[in-house]
Structure formats: structure tokens, C-alpha cells
Design a protein around this nucleic acid. Structure first.
Lengths: 348, 348
DNA sequence: TTGAAAGCGCTACCAA
DNA sequence: TTGGTAGCGCTTTCAA
């Protein structure tokens, strides 16, 4: 059954009141009996100019009476710059880790008087997206994931962005980079499993689109951890669905794996449950480890081992942005900002 | 141990190239040897005007060579309106349900040529926030949750917003409303538990801030479901932490409850695990039901009963916005858009 | 202490 | 088919 919107009987149509046009500073000036300049001085508390108290009052009252709100576009057009920091809005469900990171970042940038805007970039890719962002003339652009080329960075900079920061696996020419070394996550997991005596290691790779930027490096990290050893690595594509997990579990024994690193705790739980239903002993028969250290994993039985990931603090990133904005001539900085460490529990 | 940003040795400073100023349409005109008007005609494909093919080419080439990108603020200032739909960025971790809803909405609005912008509203509340949004002169504003008063709606409208839509528990005067009737969720859960013979029912209420807008109505719904029956309702504040759940479970028997509705599946899992560790039989001794129908719940043992929630489709909401924008004089619509139905599994 | 006016980048009207 | 130009709302210099 599809659920559809059902209109509820409404109160008698208020026949929308006179759609007055939007008040401008000129309207305020007129009402207060002063010039637009004075209005601007008063409302912006311009310190270089002294306005008499009675005038101030009249202006404030007029503004309030009209419900005057300044026009940000006009202001930044005049000023020649804005304090908008633009990020693309995430296009896929994002975990609590990242959510909190964004919140913290917004807060920290807010304290520095920046305004964070997440721009809904839907079908746009690469150049198209960069152009759309550039039209807004943000003072800085923050781009998680890959998908931004040096060319795109150039477009953004040419259109006035004083800082472009990427958060991803690799640096992009011309942009500051926060290297989230997801390989390190895989490396941790692989090393841990090897140390626990496991030699045939599976790596779950989500089939959901948009996650490649994270899953591929994690897989690669496991490969690197085991390179040159007697252990083998098998990648296991898996959709985030019960049935898919059941199918994978059904052929588990023929895969002959003795351990699996599951991209993150959610996929780990999905697979672990399917394996348990199949009678596979965990950790005896197969060790399982996830990533992201979600609450979830602590609640499973056996408790899920995981790779704890430490994202950069929102404050640090905000400071980087601010520094870059203040000194746009400086060479791009590259930081490694992802701390990965194994939290060993009972599943491995 | 705190993880800190570590700077990596960078390639020799490229001594940032000449920071040319941002090219404008005048620059393009100059380079192409035409007027600014012609540039505008060409780049916007103005149909009311025919421009010769050679001229078009020259303009396009000039634009490309300069890396010209139009200035959105200037354009919308001139046009007197924009197609920006503004939403406040969520300030707390948001589940997959809501994430997907946002994505779908962005996509649907994108198809209608709107641009969705999530505005990082950090410490701002009510009037302040409304003012900050109004400065951007969005054509429509979408506000999840409560916290917007009729006064704020008026501010937004006076500053040109042709549609204000709230997604919350109750309608706000002057704004279109999508009533997400969270009481219905509690109602479902309460009715279900009662029908299963439970009479002393606990309701988990998250202690995390920001969730009240959802949790209170859900609690109220349970109350309503059981009003006039012989059943009792107890609210159980709970922080999303293992220890808090353990404490609650430790005094479970003295609470004497035979069922619990846990706000959502995550809190349900947290509590259920703690109860199981405490030796409380589920569902025999205590029935548990969650909400949101997350994948998670299907993986628990016993499988978690839940209240499935159907959010409005992004398309429907996008259509509502579009309708409202095209006809701002119309009376605000009020829709009920939250379908709630019990998914009965093994925990209740 | 206040006002007049220029100009940010763009589009659209009117003339050529 | 193209160009000149006014003006969107705002801030800021210069004069009064």
C-alpha cells in the first residue's frame, strides 16, 4: 500500500493579505526621515561614524515596524566577498560519526563568523558541480570524498574561493587536503586479524554506490597489511540486505575463510548474524571485525571487534579554513587526519 | 590520547600565481569584442533575441578562456528572485529514514529547477534563525521540527519567501504544514502492546536533546492508546549509553513493567540487550517494540517488533513546494503525511 | 552628524 | 543583430 498525502479541511481561506513588496533600506530611510546611508550606519553599528541617539532610535523603530531584513546578496555583491563556506550535501545516509563531525564543524566555523551552507548537488558531477558552486562565490569550499579534479579546483579559485579543502583519500592539486587515510583502517584490521592467527581473510565491500571512496582504500589497506605474508585476501561484494547476507553466508564454508573485515560495523553485524544463523562459530570458525566503533557493536554477542576511527576535530578544520582564507597565497597544506586503532572485543 | 593534525612536508611553495581578479561578463564582452548585453544574451540563450553564429562562438570562446562563471547573487539581485529552497541543516545525527527523505527531496526539487540549500544554523533559535534565513531571500523555506512561530513565518514571508512549509507535529499559522503525526507512532505501539495482553507499559524517552519534538508526541500517543483502559504508562528517560541502559535494566524487576516501547529501534536494541544481560525474558517477561523499522531490528534475536514509519515522498513534498511558489496567494495546505503501522516480529 | 552618489555584476528594455 | 543603459539593494567615500 502506498501512503499518500491527504488534505485536511482547512480554516477559511485568509485570502492572503496584501502581498506588499519586500521592504528595503530605502523604505526604512523614508519612514525614519533619514537617508539610506544613515540607515546603513545605524544598522551596521559603523564605528567610523557617530549617529545621534534620537536618529538611531528612529531608524531602529522604522526597521522594526517594516520588518526590514537586509538582503544578503546585495550586501555581498557590494562588499565583493561573502563569508559563506560551501559544502556539497551528502547524497547517501551518513553515519553518526560524520554527522557529528559536520555539526562540530558548523559550530566552529560559526564561531569564526562563517556561514556554512550545504549545497544540494544532485545529479551534478565534477565540472558541473564545481561551476554551480562557483556561481555562489563562496569564500571557501569543503569537499568530502573524491570527485574533484585540479581543473575544478581552478574553477573555484578563479571565481574567488580563497580556500578549497578536500577531505579524501588523496590530495588534489591546488587544494588543501585533509587526508582521511582509509587505507590505515584496512591496515589496522588486516594486521590485527593476522596477529590473531588468521590467514584467509575476506573483506566485505558494500555494493551500495557512493561508498567506493571509502571501501576501496579500506580493502587496499588489508591487502597492504598482508602483502608478503602467507595470508590471502578475498573481496566480498555485499548489498546491505538480509537476503544478500544470507546468500553470502550460505556459501561461506566453500569460501574457506577464517576471518572477515566488514567495511563497517553495520555490514559486520549484518554478516555476523547471517553467519551465526548458518551455524558458523564466531570467532572460533571465523573472526569478524568491523569499523567505526558504533554503539551497535558493543551490543552484539559476541561483542564486535572494530576499528575505531578518529575524525579531525571540527575546530581544527575550521582553523585550517580560516587560516587559508586569511592567507590565500600560502601553499596548500596537507594533513593526515584519520586516526585508526583496533578495539579488540570478542568477535576476533 | 588525542589525535592531532600533522603537517606533511609539502611540495615547494608554488608562490601562488597572480591572484587575478574574478572575471565578469564585462571582461568576456571586452575579450569577445561585443557588449555586455550580447554576452548575456548568448550565455543565457535568450530566445527573444537572435545572435549571429560567429558572435555566439566568439562569446563562448571568450567565456571559456577566462573561466567565466556568472555571479549568482548579482543575477538574483537583478531578477528580484531566486530559486533557492532553504532548509536548516540538521543539528543532530539523523537516521537513514530522514537521510533518504532529504536526498529524494533534493532530487525532486532539482528536477523542478530549484536549488536546495541546507543552512548551518548553529546556535540560532526562533527569531534569530528566521532572520538569518530571510537574509538569503529564499523562494521557499522548509523547516523540520518545531521551533518556528507564526511571527517567524511572517518575517520569512515579508522578506519574499513565497512558501514556508513546516514538517512537524503541529501546523503554524501562515505556513503550509506537513503534519508528521508522531502520536500515531505511539498510538500504534500502545495499541499493539495492549492487544498482546500487556498492561504495565514503559516508554523510553531519550535524554539526548533535540529529540523531544519526536519523543514527546510518541509518548503521548501511547498514553492516548491506553487512556480509559486498565493499563498504565510509565516514562523511562534513557541516555543512549550502555551504562545507562544497564542501570535501567538493573531496576527493571522493581519497576514491574511487562512491556516497553522504546522510542526507536536503536534505543530498543540498547535496552533489550541490557534486559537480556539481566536475565529478563523477552518477550515472555517483557515485550519490546521499537520504531523506524531499521535493518538493525531484523538482525536481533528475538527479532525486534517495530513501528514502521512512512515519510512523505520527496516528490509529493517537492510538488507541494512548487505549487505554493507558483500560487503564493493560496491558503496554506495542511497534510498528514506520516503513515505508521506495526511490524510484528518476535520481541512482543 | 547627515546626505548625495557611485558602483558591485547582471539582465532586460529600448534604440540604433 | 547589436549596443547603451537603467536599476536590483547595499555600503562607503566624499561633501556639506
Amino acid at each position: 500500500m502506498r501512503y499518500v498525502m491527504v488534505q485536511i479541511p482547512k480554516t477559511p481561506a485568509p485570502a492572503s493579505p496584501v502581498p506588499r513588496s519586500v521592504p528595503t533600506s530605502a523604505d526604512v530611510a523614508r519612514l525614519a526621515g533619514v537617508s539610506r546611508a544613515t540607515v546603513s550606519y545605524v544598522l551596521n553599528n559603523t564605528s567610523a561614524v557617530r549617529i545621534s541617539e534620537p536618529t538611531r532610535r528612529r531608524v531602529h523603530e522604522a526597521a522594526k515596524e517594516l520588518g526590514y531584513v537586509p538582503h544578503a546578496a546585495a550586501r555581498s555583491l557590494r562588499a565583493g566577498h561573502s563569508r559563506m563556506v560551501l559544502m556539497p550535501a551528502p547524497t547517501f545516509p551518513v553515519g553518526p560519526l560524520y554527522s557529528q563531525f559536520i555539526s562540530e564543524l558548523q559550530w566552529a566555523l560559526g564561531r569564526l563568523e562563517y556561514t556554512v551552507v550545504q549545497f544540494g548537488t544532485v545529479g551534478l558531477h565534477g565540472a558541473e558541480a564545481a561551476r554551480a558552486w562557483a556561481e555562489l562565490r563562496p569564500v571557501a569550499v569543503l569537499v568530502p570524498g573524491s570527485g574533484l579534479g585540479p581543473k575544478d579546483v581552478a574553477v573555484l579559485k578563479r571565481s574567488g574561493a580563497r580556500a578549497v579543502v578536500t577531505l579524501g583519500s588523496e590530495a588534489v592539486e591546488g587544494a588543501h587536503a585533509l587526508l582521511m587515510d582509509h587505507e590505515a583502517v584496512g591496515l589496522c584490521a588486516g594486521t590485527h586479524l593476522y596477529a590473531r592467527g588468521r590467514r584467509r581473510i575476506g573483506v566485505v565491500v558494500p555494493e551500495e554506490p557512493g561508498l567506493d571512496a571509502f571501501s576501496m582504500p579500506r580493502l587496499e589497506g588489508v591487502r597492504r597489511a598482508l602483502h608478503g605474508t602467507d595470508a590471502t585476501v578475498a573481496d566480498l561484494p555485499l548489498a546491505y540486505e538480509e537476503a544478500a547476507a544470507a546468500r553470502l553466508a550460505a556459501r561461506w564454508r566453500e569460501l574457506g575463510l577464517d576471518a572477515v573485515f566488514a567495511y563497517n560495523d553495520e555490514y559486520a553485524m549484518l554478516l555476523m548474524r547471517a553467519l551465526q544463523d548458518e551455524g558458523v562459530g564466531i570467532p572460533q570458525e571465523t573472526a569478524v571485525i568491523g569499523a567505526d566503533d558504533l554503539m551497535l557493536g558493543r551490543l552484539l554477542r559476541p561483542r564486535l571487534s572494530t576499528v575505531h576511527i578518529e575524525l579531525p576535530s571540527g575546530r581544527d578544520l575550521a582553523d585550517l579554513v580560516d587560516r587559508a582564507v586569511r592567507n590565500p597565497g600560502a601553499a596548500p597544506e596537507t594533513h593526515t587526519v584519520l586516526g585508526a586503532s583496533v578495539v579488540h572485543r570478542d568477535s576476533s
